[in-house]
Design a protein around this nucleic acid. Structure first.
Lengths: 358, 358
DNA sequence: ACATATAATGTAATCGATTACAATAATAAG
DNA sequence: CTTATTATTGTAATCGATTACATTATATGT
């Protein structure tokens, strides 16, 4: 109601200038202790609050950071975001969250929109589905792949990838060792006596899915199991998709005795289909997912999965961002952090009645 | 790298003033068609993009809206947020999402922080746990309940509650008819032949939980079933909490034959406990949850739940916000929207082998 | 006491866009 | 061919905070 108090109001009341008030408020050394205290007290009394927009305009920093994720209603992304917030909030930053619903077109929209909002940086996990011929509204030309990030890079706005990254020079990233995660999961299945292990993959143009595929493959090879391409199927990370694909697997002449999925959601779809067909888990078919979504633990038939320590991932991504901001436009050094995954062994894959990791 | 182009750059290049450029860019009528086109073309060529901070400072509008939720990793809140975004993005707004983790202290922090970021409004679902004696950093006095929102209200920043609201005069809200949702759920259990229906409640200082409690109670009364206070237990909306509480219920002399929970998460906890004790669902005990979280549908034993049409709720909350913004500080009229819940009947409560609502 | 160093404050420009008001150019009216 | 009218553009203040530079007040040294 009553207009907000500005430093000018305080200045007028104290018969000094706004500059002095500003200095007092900013702990500038060029000011006497007496006036500083006076100003601080008066500011408090007048209910002064700094206008961040003005400050942002002056400093060129908005103290807003954009976070772009495929969706927020997965525990993985929500946890990463929480990690980012935990690190950035105390530093005075705000986080603007955008969802792409895994569509590249929305990714472009979001980036431009965030740029427009003057964000100081963007932390993101790239999307999967190239849903349409994307047209850059600025240039009216079609956008191909990495072009999407050009606007950011041209403007020198810090960009940090997490989990789903792209290899772009100058761009830092925080990921887990997907190869190892997949290798461990596959090895575990082999240890349980499984020999015909299928793999629910996803678009392998994306590094994470490619690496999981490679880890899976290597584990087979290292154990002297023949790699069978027909056991690898791509599908979206959704329950219905996992289900559909599993239908095909089960219809094979010699169906698999285990499934390692790059996603907990498609793993869940697989489980539903397997059970619906009257097969037993893990006796007939074992299933392992990826991401350690909470439901994997909650299911009556708990699901073995690979934990990605998402909160940690978020915190680190935020730290990398802060470093880049400090560096300013100076040294443009990429930083690539790789976290170690952890296999959480549960009922869906545990043949023997050993202890269960929760 | 190359500093961003401003209207001054354009002005200089065309040998006109920034004012003219601004007018051209803003479709101001006081300008010739010729210059407008020239400016527009030059702006595009120079890759001009408006600095929203400057505009925000001038106009006093940041085009940022704060959304405060207990957490984002529940499908309900994530979907509400999506609804809000769908409505607000096309209008040029950005959404800053804050999580409180259900702690009132964080709620206060978030509000002040958003206020500091000059948001044009706040759309929120209030938190549950009064985790500590909250001290207002401004006044250094303890904050009690609604005081938390005072800063917003004093500054006349539009505030809209959704789902978990507080009755504050002048503040609009969008909720579902919780009474009806609970009534329908309870009636359904009764229809299935259940007579001793327990209720997992939650802090009934919150309207939603109070209303669900009342709906439950009324359904019992309307069906001539004696209301038994000992069958009503408060617990947090978490899996472990639901489990603990169910343990107590099952240890009663005459345990319940059905459980209606205000939360899908505590319902899931109940289910795990029931199954662990070797009881059958729904034969021995039926369970109904609330919120229609995706996992309720995905479980092998799918869970009956009450859908709250969260996306719709978000869209409407956003619309109400937009109306309030248009109104400006003029008419201060509250608006209270009540959506209708829908009972999704699934295996966890369906005694007879009727069709299953998906 | 006087010169000089240091501390404290003031002045004014700046960040980028908007807009009342003033000034000029173009057109219509007489 | 003036004068009135309108269309277009320019000038300069404004939003609120920050800061280089200038100025004044105070302290220190000899």
């Amino acid at each position: 109601m009553s207009k907000k108090t500005t430093i000018y109001d305080i200045a007028k009341k104290l018969n000094i200038t706004a500059a002095t008030v500003s200095r007092a408020l900013n702990n500038n050394p060029k000011i006497s202790e007496a006036t500083r205290e006076l100003v601080l007290k008066t500011a408090a009394k007048m209910n002064y609050e700094q206008n961040r927009l003005a400050q942002a305009l002056k400093s060129g920093k908005s103290y807003n950071v954009g976070v772009i994720v495929p969706r927020i209603d997965s525990n993985f992304f929500a946890s990463v975001i929480r990690g980012i917030e935990e690190e950035l909030y105390p530093m005075g930053y705000h986080v603007i969250i955008c969802q792409t619903h895994d569509q590249k077109s929305l990714e472009l929209t979001n980036i431009n929109s965030l740029l427009n909002a003057q964000v100081d940086g963007v932390i993101m996990s790239v999307s999967n589905v190239n849903d349409a011929d994307i047209v850059n509204p600025d240039t009216d030309t079609k956008v191909i792949e990495d072009d999407i990030f050009n606007n950011l890079i041209k403007k020198n706005v810090p960009l940090i990838f997490f989990d789903r990254k792209k290899d772009i020079k100058g761009v830092s990233s925080v990921v887990i060792d997907d190869f190892k995660g997949a290798y461990d999961a596959t090895q575990h299945l082999i240890d349980q006596g499984k020999k015909r292990i299928a793999h629910l993959s996803n678009n392998r143009d994306m590094e994470i899915f490619k690496n999981r595929y490679l880890g899976y493959k290597q584990a087979l090879i290292d154990n002297g199991i023949e790699f069978d391409e027909s056991l690898v199927i791509e599908c979206y990370s959704k329950v219905p998709d996992g289900r559909k694909v599993t239908q095909k697997l089960l219809a094979m002449e010699t169906p698999p005795d285990a499934i390692f999925s790059v996603s907990d959601f498609s793993a869940l779809g697989a489980i539903k289909e397997i059970l619906d067909q009257g097969l037993r888990i893990p006796e007939d078919i074992s299933v392992v997912g990826f991401s350690n979504e909470p439901f994997t633990k909650f299911m009556e038939l708990s699901i073995t999965s690979v934990d990605q320590s998402p909160t940690e991932m978020g915190r680190i991504a935020a730290k990398v961002f802060l470093e880049e901001v400090e560096n300013g436009n100076n040294v443009k050094s990429e930083k690539h952090v790789v976290l170690s995954p952890e296999l959480m062994i549960r009922k869906s894959s545990l043949s023997k009645s050993s202890a269960i990791t929760v």
